[in-house]
Simulated scan of single mutants.
Amino acid sequence: MTVTTTEKATAEKAASVEFRGLRRQFGTTTALDGLDLAVQPGEFLALLGPSGCGKTTALRMLAGFEHPDSGEVLVDGEDVTRVPAHRRDAGMVFQSYSLFPHLDAVGNVAFGLRMRGVRTTERRTRATELLELVGLADKGRRFPHQLSGGQQQRIALARALALRPRVLLLDEPLSALDAKVRLTLREEIRRLQQELGITTLFVTHDQEEALSLADRVAVMHAGRLEQCAAPAELYGRPATAFVAEFVGTMSRIPGRFTDGLVEVLGRRLPVDGPPPSAADVDVLVRPEAVGVRADAGSGARVAATAFLGAATRVTVRLADGTEVKADLPTHEAAALGAGTEVSVSLPDRPVLVADRGR
């Protein structure tokens, strides 16, 4: 695909973004509790977390739709905290599309340009250019009710890009779509972002979506930033127990911390990260790090298996009732049916721990 004038103009304007000490209270609810976060020009950053963690509030503050009780929002080093939304130079795509039903696709994409007084010929040219960019060059005369959900979302994306914003904001834009369309559009959004080089913030509660799309993922919880890192680091070296359990699957196995090591499943292993504050701890392990083998008389049994294709997830119930998940090659798991007595092992490497029950 050739790079259009719209793409060149957008890439040249990629901006840095910074949140400094953002705080926002809604009644007795704290939406943001001192958020500090910096986004580099051209970076794709995902804000990930459960409902109510503050990720959408942060995005709306960047767009200018919400204002903090304290703290600053900076774009390219300029404080825009009190700048009106229409002067923020940000394009936003909502979950609900928000297309105008009485306008066709070209009219919807060109709407913001018309409001800015761009000449008819120029705005139609730019709208047509953007429709081609999002793969809908042949749908320009269609109205929203004549388009699928995925196509409508592409129109909304093209409309957000039409004004050549310095920052693109995506607020759970895929959550209303079915799984197949969501996957396709996810790939399209990433392709477009890379081609345009536009600074993008993407809000989602879907960990797979965040890990597959973003250069970095900022995990939020209760209005605070838990960790911001590249997807591989976030998954492999979570900074907190919350991140470890929210991103991917994690099992908790009771252990005991003494003399700088944690005793778990009959082994003494070093701790990954700061030492715990108590002796009784939970050891957090990913299913791919757990080994399982048949072992009569061990006291642990296979509770369930789930076929995942090349791998099978085996859930083992230990003698104390703790359940541990292990992802094994399917051909190995075939011999471990429900009720099989097994032993569970961990690799000889540092493990993440958390205070018991926290």
Rank of each mutant, 00 (worst) to 15 (best):
T340E: 04
P274W: 01
E132Q: 15
L169S: 00
D69H: 05
G42F: 08
G197F: 05
R24F: 07
V247Y: 04
L147Q: 08
L35K: 00
A333R: 11
A137K: 14
Y97I: 06
Q227G: 07
A303K: 10
R256S: 11
K8R: 15
G54F: 00
E18K: 15
V353N: 03
R252T: 02
T184C: 01
D259A: 14
D280T: 04
E288I: 08
R60L: 13
A15I: 03
F26Q: 11
R317M: 03
V271D: 02
A335R: 13
V118N: 03
A137L: 10
L196A: 07
L170V: 13
M250Y: 00
K8M: 13
A303L: 15
V324P: 02
Q193H: 15
Q95S: 01
V80L: 11
E12G: 08
R267Q: 13
V219N: 10
R60E: 11
L37W: 12
A90K: 03
D76V: 01
E245A: 14
L62W: 06
G107H: 12
V73W: 10
R301Y: 06
A127V: 10
D320P: 03
A85P: 00
G309C: 09
E132M: 02
A306Y: 12
P101I: 00
R23T: 14
G266D: 03
L131Q: 11
F257G: 00
P231T: 03
P270S: 04
R88D: 11
V106N: 05
H67P: 00
